[in-house]
Design a protein around this nucleic acid. Structure first.
Length: 212
DNA sequence: AACATGATGATCT
DNA sequence: GATCATCATGTTC
């Protein structure tokens, strides 16, 4: 591999990452969507640890027609009803896996879609999984990040606050200023301002007009 | 029939 | 390099 392309140029060791505890997560889906900006998604693979910083999220709420749980629990959306901090992974458009974090107490269906990550470490494995070395395209977009991190249905229901194949971390980095907009790619309840992103971050997805 | 998308190619800078 | 329009895709209800 070409070490010159590593993002950790000049770093003697990777930054220390602390796993988030469930009681640290807001028990409110909107609050969680904002809280997660700047935090880390850590994917443990047999040969590598892949890490990305969350730079874009969307909240899907109780009573929200765009939320998969809107019409009640089904076999697919079951994980959305787990206690906050569990993974809900589903297939969109027949080909893209979506990673969500459940956001309410057990029995209530709502969650946060992780829409984009900034690459932090494990870039070589991400490049292999994505079939490109274009850094900006590795994790920008919910389907791309799932592909880069080898996230699929096998991870649905995973406790993201426990030791396991994928979890949420914090390295103490300043999350930076947040922006908000309508959500991307939906038709129902499309006017609600429930998308959050890190202002000025190059790895945020979506059209420029939504990222002022 | 709808759908929480991405790759591609055209066009502009 | 950025942005935009187009369409392939197959699960889910």
């Amino acid at each position: 591999m070409n070490r010159a392309r590593s993002p950790a140029r000049g770093a003697a060791r990777p930054p220390r990452v602390r796993r988030l505890r469930r009681k640290e997560l807001p028990v409110d889906t909107v609050a969680l969507a904002r809280f997660l900006l700047g935090k880390l998604v850590v994917r443990e693979l047999p040969r590598a640890r892949l890490v990305g910083r969350i730079v874009e999220t969307e909240a899907y709420l109780v009573g929200d027609a765009a939320c998969h749980a809107f019409r009640g629990m089904t076999e697919r959306n079951r994980s959305l009803f787990r206690a906050h901090g569990h993974a809900y992974v589903y297939l969109a458009y027949g080909s893209s896996w979506m990673l969500n974090v459940s956001g309410e107490p057990e029995g209530t269906g709502a969650g946060v879609l992780i829409r984009a990550l900034e690459p932090v470490s494990g870039l070589a494995a991400m490049e292999r999984a994505r079939g490109t070395r274009e850094r900006r395209d590795l994790l920008r977009g919910p389907g791309r990040l799932a592909q880069a991190l080898a996230i699929d249905r096998a991870l649905d229901g995973t406790d993201l606050c426990a030791r396991g194949p994928v979890w949420l971390g914090d390295d103490g980095a300043d999350p930076g200023a947040h922006g908000a907009s309508v959500r991307i790619g939906i038709t129902k309840d499309a006017e609600r301002i429930l998308r959050y992103y890190v202002r000025g971050n190059r790895y945020v997805s979506g059209p420029g007009r939504l990222n002022p």
